[in-house]
Amino acid sequence: MSEKTILKFSDETAAIAKKIVARYPEGRHKSALIPLLHLAQAEFDGWLSVPAMDCVAEFLSIQPIEAYEVASFYSMFNLKPVGKCTLEVCRTSSCWLSGAEDVVRHIEKKLGIKEGQTTADGMFTLKTVECLGSCGTAPMLQCGGDYYENLTLEKTDNLLEALRAEGKARVYTNDNPVNID
């Protein structure tokens, strides 16, 4: 993608973004930056290219650098392309003590990639991340908006298969209801 590419939110996303901006007092619309970067990441292939960040900056009438410096601070924003499903395995204490390392090694072997890499077919990216607040159900991984907990190697295999069949991770955009009951 060249620097000159110009990206724009779809009409639906722009409508959601407008609603978000209305949550803040007059003149404080910059508060919408992080939620809008999430929207941009969801809309533009799971990562924030320069044009994607420019689109957010333009929408909020702020300097592009303000969007870049925020995007680069937060670990959920991908500044490089990622696969359709990013597997984020927790690597902190409770998970590491409960076999998270085995899960990582297993996925590496199964997919033929190392931590931080993406499969050649662009399907999976493997990452390790810090505690996701799921320590009581360790080991665990996050993919898109979903938590997969109490993992075993067998469950991990099943998950990879299911994700491959679905073809993408589920993300929760602001108007997508969650049903857990």
Binding site: H38, V129, G133, Q142, G145, V171, Y172, P177, V178, I180
Partner: peptide, 14 residues
């Protein structure tokens, strides 16, 4: 709400 708790945020928003 922390960003990773996206589904939790949706529950609270609902």
């Amino acid at each position: 709400i922390r960003g990773e708790y996206f589904y939790v945020a949706r529950i609270v928003e609902q």
